[in-house]
Deep mutational scan, measured.
Amino acid sequence: ELELEEVDLYRMNSQDKLGLTVCYRTDDEDDIGIYISEIDPNSIAAKDGRIREGDRIIQINGIEVQNREEAVALLTSEENKNFSLLIARP
């Protein structure tokens, strides 16, 4: 049973970094989820404190993420200042 949490992050300008590194968990081929492998200690996500390494990203801004490229594109989008992440953890 996964616990879901919605985390809203806000950046003042497009130079601010959310600070999330995303990856696949390669140990299970059936698991195509996108996971947070690293959080930059000086980033918006780290200061917010709710997202943890190992969390799975389900949605970004209401869009279900299917692959790492999509997640990276959404997280690094210059147009977005508000990010709503739906994350899951066991």
Rank of each mutant, 00 (worst) to 15 (best):
D8R: 14
N13M: 04
N13Q: 12
N80C: 09
L4F: 14
L4Y: 11
Y10V: 12
E1V: 04
V72K: 09
L9I: 08
C23I: 15
L86R: 12
D40Q: 13
N80A: 12
E3V: 07
R89C: 03
A45R: 00
L85Q: 00
T76I: 11
A45S: 10
L2V: 07
Q66L: 14
R52C: 12
D48S: 10
E6Y: 03
L86I: 10
G33A: 09
G49Q: 05
V22T: 11
P90K: 08
V72S: 11
E53L: 08
D40K: 13
I34W: 10
S14F: 05
N42K: 11
N67G: 07
N67P: 03
G33L: 06
L86C: 13
D30P: 15
L86V: 15
D30T: 09
N42C: 09
R52Q: 10
E64G: 03
C23K: 08
D28L: 11
D8E: 06
V65A: 15
E1N: 15
S77W: 03
E38A: 08
T26R: 12
I36Q: 00
E29L: 09
Y24I: 14
A45D: 01
S43R: 03
A71C: 11
E3K: 10
D28V: 11
E29I: 14
L86G: 15
P90G: 09
Q15D: 12
A88W: 05
V65D: 06
S37R: 09
L20A: 01
A45C: 06
S84E: 09
F83P: 06
I58M: 04
V72Q: 13
D30R: 10
Q15V: 08
D31G: 12
E3R: 06
S84Q: 14
D28K: 11
D48W: 01
L4R: 13
D55Q: 06
A88H: 08
E64L: 04
T26F: 09
T26K: 11
E64F: 01
T76D: 08
E6M: 05
E1W: 02
E70K: 05
E29P: 14
I87D: 00
I44R: 03
D27A: 11
R25D: 15
D8H: 15
D16C: 14
F83W: 06
E3Y: 13
A45I: 03
P41S: 12
L2A: 08
T21H: 08
K81W: 09
A71T: 12
E3Q: 05
R89H: 14
L85I: 07
G19C: 00
I63G: 05
R25G: 09
R89T: 10
I44C: 12
E69H: 15
G54Q: 08
L18A: 04
D16M: 09
E6G: 10
E38T: 10
D40H: 13
G19Q: 00
I39N: 00
I57C: 08
V22P: 10
Q66A: 15
T26V: 11
L75R: 01
I51A: 06
R56K: 15
K47T: 09
A46R: 05
Y24G: 10
I60V: 08
S77H: 09
I63T: 13
R50L: 02
E3T: 06
I87V: 08
A46V: 02
E70Q: 14
E3M: 13
A73M: 13
E1L: 08
L86Q: 15
N82R: 08
R56A: 15
R50D: 02
E1D: 15
A45M: 02
N67M: 15
R56Y: 11
L74M: 09
V7H: 02
E78V: 08
Q59W: 03
Y10L: 15
Y35D: 03
A88F: 11
I63K: 05
V72G: 08
K47G: 14
I60W: 01
C23N: 08
K81T: 10
E70L: 05
G49P: 14
G19M: 01
V7F: 11
V65T: 07
I51H: 00
R25F: 04
M12Y: 10
Y35W: 03
L2R: 14
E5P: 02
I32F: 02
D28G: 10
A88S: 14
E79M: 07
I32L: 13
T76C: 09
D48Q: 04
I57D: 00
T21V: 03
V22D: 01
R52I: 15
Y10K: 14
Q59V: 11
N82A: 07
E6I: 04
E38H: 14
V72M: 14
L4H: 06
Q15L: 09
E64W: 01
L86A: 11
Q15E: 10
R56H: 05
D40R: 11
R11F: 02
E38M: 09
A73N: 11
Q66S: 15
T76Q: 06
I39A: 01
Q59C: 10
E53N: 10
I60L: 09
R52K: 09
